[in-house]
Computed example of a mutant assay.
Amino acid sequence: MTTALLAPTALPSATLAVASPWASRSLTLPALGNLDAYISAVNRMPLLTLEEEQGAARRLRDHNDIDAAGQLVMSHLRLVVSIARQYLGYGLPHGDLIQEGNVGLMKAVKRFDPEQGVRLVSYAMHWIKAEIHEYILKNWRMVKVATTKAQRKLFFNLRSMKQGFRAEALDGDTHREAFSDGEVDVVARDLKVKPEEVREMETRLSGGDVVLDPSPGDDGEDSFGPIAFLADATHEPTAMIESAQRDVLATEGIATAMSELDDRSRRIVTERWLKVNDDGSGGMTLHELAAEYGVSAERVRQIEVAAMKKMRKALAAFA
């Protein structure tokens, strides 16, 4: 994904030449894949004054000016780099975090209204963080650990709050991993969530992804995994009893239910539900049975429905 890092910021020309101070500066983006050069380049890009920012935003809003959108995006790329650096502790590539933040920046530029009285830098922070948060939640683990609003809030605050508690520890136990009951109550109160939600998220974060059925090793033999500890449900007593009951219903029960039908109904049910030819196809169609008995296809369907209802009652009595 890092090789596509500059894709969100690519404009009709890699060199910007617009109104002052942009007209006096020619900035060429570095080659794809060089993250350090990219960061260095975006940090050298000029910032917009309030008047320039509002003018570009109005041109984008009123005239769909793509050059104005590019000017707004390019002047705020350093903001994305700064925000993305705050999330390096989650073990995801810095380039991918920047790329997702660039997507959020472009969404912010598209929705930015200069008449609201706020600068784009303040408005865009929410969108940048939202995209980065979504990327982290989807890619931090194979199994998504946070889905509700409360869980997302805990995911991005629990670790930093735990580090704060350990730094302030008076008992010298700075290596203790789990929250104490008092710390759980403080976290729940500060983040406005339930204490049990704090404990559940702490349990989720302390664990990791485990492959139940590992792939064979280099020697061709199967690796030993947690799936070996799972019970075989096929020999569980309840499952065995249910399987035996299904077998009886499928043989003796169906035979008993079919004996309750008249010859015509029995043949219609057999052709429609029980007959399988050598080529895998079923029995006769409604129209074929209707032609044989000299009635309409709808009448054959009605007979079939009545026969099935009668068989269900007979099966219920048999069971």
Score class of each variant (00 low, 15 high):
2 T>I: 14
8 P>M: 02
11 L>S: 09
11 L>Q: 12
14 A>C: 08
15 T>H: 07
18 V>E: 12
21 P>C: 08
22 W>Q: 10
24 S>E: 15
25 R>Y: 04
31 A>I: 08
33 G>S: 06
35 L>N: 00
37 A>N: 11
37 A>I: 11
40 S>I: 04
45 M>D: 00
46 P>C: 03
46 P>L: 05
47 L>D: 13
47 L>M: 12
52 E>R: 08
53 E>S: 11
66 I>N: 02
66 I>W: 03
67 D>S: 11
73 V>K: 02
84 A>C: 04
85 R>P: 03
85 R>S: 15
89 G>L: 10
95 G>I: 05
100 E>A: 11
105 L>W: 05
107 K>H: 12
115 E>G: 12
123 Y>S: 00
127 W>K: 06
127 W>R: 11
128 I>P: 01
128 I>G: 02
129 K>Y: 00
130 A>P: 01
132 I>K: 00
132 I>R: 00
137 L>V: 13
141 R>L: 08
141 R>H: 15
148 T>Q: 02
162 K>E: 11
163 Q>I: 13
164 G>A: 09
165 F>T: 02
171 D>Q: 04
179 F>M: 12
181 D>R: 09
188 A>G: 11
195 P>Y: 10
197 E>R: 11
203 T>Y: 12
205 L>Q: 05
208 G>A: 12
210 V>M: 12
212 L>G: 07
214 P>N: 08
216 P>K: 14
216 P>Y: 09
219 D>Y: 06
220 G>M: 07
223 S>I: 06
224 F>R: 10
225 G>E: 05
235 H>S: 14
237 P>N: 07
239 A>Q: 14
239 A>P: 00
244 A>F: 10
245 Q>N: 10
248 V>H: 09
249 L>P: 04
250 A>R: 14
256 T>V: 08
257 A>R: 01
268 I>V: 15
271 E>L: 04
271 E>Q: 15
272 R>H: 07
274 L>C: 08
278 D>P: 01
279 D>V: 04
283 G>W: 05
285 T>H: 03
286 L>W: 09
289 L>D: 01
292 E>Y: 05
293 Y>W: 15
299 R>C: 02
302 Q>G: 01
309 K>S: 12
309 K>M: 09
312 R>N: 13
312 R>I: 10
315 L>T: 02
317 A>Y: 05
317 A>E: 14
